[in-house]
């Protein structure tokens, strides 16, 4: 039963990811005084891409064709681990937060390889920059995760959420810092402004788009969907770890429904905050990323220090 619910939850997660992305785009358009497309537009795009005949470069090797599947599958795995509307699910036991980071790394490994596969300058540039961002973001992310894991003395997401719920509302400076650090990392990892611009195809500024420039058809659809899932994953991660209230603690239908409503509400709020931030700031130069991510690391480090100094005996 529990396994069934968790599979259902994962499927729901995957199905809702384009909606979240559409919501973010919709809000952003409104904020920038443009006429927004329908919230359902990402679904239409995906369907269109899946139906299209893919075009592949003649020089491509099997890595190029395999990479979209790997990226998509790692995103789905990660979605299966993260508690969405309910926690205490069996899938959460399969892998913990560090494995989650590992899955992201696996997807990125193949995506960057795919960028290098054709031997075009754009792909190489995107891969190289993606690897720089990853190298700088990973310590900050791990530090934020550690702050959480050491406070809750677990790396299991379900258990951590349980711990936060159990201790009730406590003003933890460490969590606030960790939240800040994780948010910055999430912005960098999902390729949002100010680190990367998901809407650009301007040669010198793109990172993620540069790697997938040669993809089309179902391959592109898988990659797009994967990155939509990733964006929503970070949203769910942040809202469920730091504000888990509302999540269903058992599998009663009413609780599950309430949990679903709660997470949708939290995501809707995040989906307003993210485009607002993106509208307010400008994209950075590539070599300012280190300051941005260094700041994320500093926040996470301060989280750790204030945990050690202020919070424990």
């Amino acid at each position: 039963m529990a396994w069934l619910i968790s599979f259902f939850e994962t499927a729901l997660f995957i199905a809702l990811a384009p909606l979240f992305c559409g919501w973010v785009k919709w809000v952003k358009c409104l904020l920038q005084n443009r006429r927004p497309p329908s919230v359902l537009q990402p679904y239409r795009d995906l369907i269109k891409l899946f139906r299209k005949r893919p075009v592949i470069a003649a020089e491509a090797s099997w890595v190029f064709e395999a990479a979209p599947y790997v990226v998509f599958v790692t995103a789905v795995f990660a979605a299966g681990i993260v508690p969405f509307a309910a926690h205490h699910l069996p899938t959460a036991k399969v892998a913990d937060l560090i494995v989650l980071v590992g899955f992201f790394a696996l997807g990125r490994f193949f995506l960057t390889l795919a960028g290098m596969d054709l031997g075009t300058a754009f792909g190489g540039m995107g891969s190289s920059r993606e690897m720089m961002i990853a190298s700088l973001a990973e310590p900050a992310m791990l530090m934020a995760v550690f702050t959480l894991a050491i406070s809750a003395s677990t790396t299991n997401l379900s258990e951590a959420i349980h711990w936060v719920l159990e201790t009730g509302l406590v003003l933890r400076p460490s969590f606030v810092f960790a939240l800040g650090g994780l948010t910055l990392v999430a912005i960098a990892e999902t390729g949002r402004i100010p680190v990367d611009n998901p809407a650009t195809h301007l040669e010198l500024t793109m990172v993620h788009e540069a790697m997938i420039l040669e993809y089309s058809g179902k391959y592109l659809a898988l990659l797009e969907w994967g990155s939509q899932i990733k964006l929503m994953l970070y949203g769910v991660l942040i809202s469920n770890i730091f504000l888990p209230w509302g999540i269903a603690e058992d599998f009663e239908i009413s609780h599950l429904g309430f949990g679903l409503a709660a997470i949708v509400a939290k995501l809707a709020v995040l989906g307003i905050a993210l485009p607002t931030g993106e509208t307010l700031v400008a994209k950075m130069r590539v070599f300012r990323y280190q300051e941005f991510l260094g700041f994320a690391y500093l926040l996470s480090l301060l989280g750790m220090l204030s945990h050690v100094i202020l919070e424990v005996n």
Binding site: E59, S61, V63, V101, A105, R108, F109, T112, L113, G115, M116, D117, L118, G119, G124, S127, M131, M132, A134, S135, A137, E138, P139, M141, L142, M143
Partner: peptide, 22 residues
């Protein structure tokens, strides 16, 4: 963690430059 990410970058380089591309 930094080490892990940089190692991954190094081996993306080995594979991406040495085995992929032209």
């Amino acid at each position: 963690a930094l080490t892990g990410a940089v190692t991954a970058a190094a081996f993306v380089k080995v594979y991406g430059v040495g085995f992929l591309g032209q």
